[in-house]
Amino acid sequence: MKNGIHPAYRTVVFRDRAAGTAFLTRSTATSARTVEWADGATYPVVDVEVSSASHPFYTGNARVMDSAGRVERFERRYGRR
């Protein structure tokens, strides 16, 4: 790898605003805000809107689309050809 062209890879806290949870991981993401973690160290914090803690697919709250009802509604609206 070439020196000086890659972003710094460091420990960062990702905070999910919807679920109110935080994850400590490594990333190249940057932020001017910091947060003190449970280990007493201060890390940069990146706020995200959706993560695995709040996404409907991972939490089991995903809606199931009724495809048969959608087809019938389409046929009523536009007729069957």
Score class of each variant (00 low, 15 high):
18 A>Y: 01
27 S>R: 14
49 E>H: 00
34 T>S: 09
75 E>R: 15
79 G>E: 13
55 H>A: 08
27 S>Q: 09
53 A>G: 02
70 R>L: 15
23 F>W: 01
50 V>R: 10
66 D>L: 11
70 R>G: 14
12 V>D: 01
18 A>W: 00
30 T>G: 01
76 R>M: 05
65 M>L: 10
1 M>H: 09
42 T>E: 11
66 D>S: 10
42 T>L: 07
80 R>T: 02
68 A>S: 13
12 V>P: 00
31 S>P: 07
65 M>P: 00
76 R>N: 12
56 P>T: 11
23 F>C: 02
81 R>L: 05
6 H>S: 03
73 R>M: 06
38 A>G: 02
12 V>K: 05
67 S>P: 04
65 M>C: 02
38 A>T: 14
54 S>T: 06
25 T>Q: 05
71 V>T: 14
1 M>W: 12
51 S>W: 00
29 A>N: 11
14 F>T: 04
79 G>Y: 01
30 T>W: 02
24 L>E: 04
20 G>E: 12
50 V>K: 09
17 R>A: 04
9 Y>I: 09
42 T>K: 15
44 P>Y: 05
30 T>M: 09
27 S>C: 06
6 H>R: 14
15 R>K: 12
33 R>N: 13
33 R>A: 12
81 R>C: 00
64 V>L: 06
81 R>F: 01
53 A>Y: 00
65 M>G: 03
19 A>C: 05
71 V>I: 15
33 R>T: 11
21 T>C: 08
59 T>G: 07
45 V>D: 02
10 R>N: 03
43 Y>K: 09
28 T>N: 08
69 G>R: 14
19 A>G: 07
53 A>E: 05
51 S>T: 14
41 A>L: 13
29 A>S: 11
32 A>L: 13
15 R>L: 06
38 A>D: 07
73 R>G: 07
65 M>W: 00
62 A>L: 10
57 F>C: 12
40 G>C: 07
11 T>I: 07
38 A>R: 15
33 R>M: 12
1 M>Q: 10
45 V>M: 03
61 N>P: 01
75 E>F: 04
69 G>Y: 03
40 G>L: 09
36 E>T: 15
38 A>H: 08
13 V>A: 02
72 E>C: 09
30 T>C: 02
7 P>S: 11
31 S>M: 11
69 G>T: 15
81 R>N: 09
40 G>E: 10
59 T>R: 12
46 V>C: 03
35 V>G: 02
11 T>R: 12
19 A>K: 05
43 Y>S: 00
63 R>L: 10
10 R>L: 05
19 A>I: 03
42 T>H: 11
24 L>N: 01
26 R>M: 13
71 V>W: 07
60 G>A: 05
38 A>Q: 14
37 W>E: 00
12 V>Q: 04
35 V>L: 13
36 E>H: 12
67 S>H: 12
12 V>T: 04
21 T>M: 09
44 P>M: 12
4 G>N: 10
50 V>M: 08
4 G>I: 06
7 P>V: 13
7 P>L: 15
5 I>P: 00
38 A>Y: 03
1 M>S: 09
37 W>P: 00
56 P>I: 08
18 A>K: 14
7 P>T: 13
34 T>R: 14
36 E>L: 11
69 G>F: 02
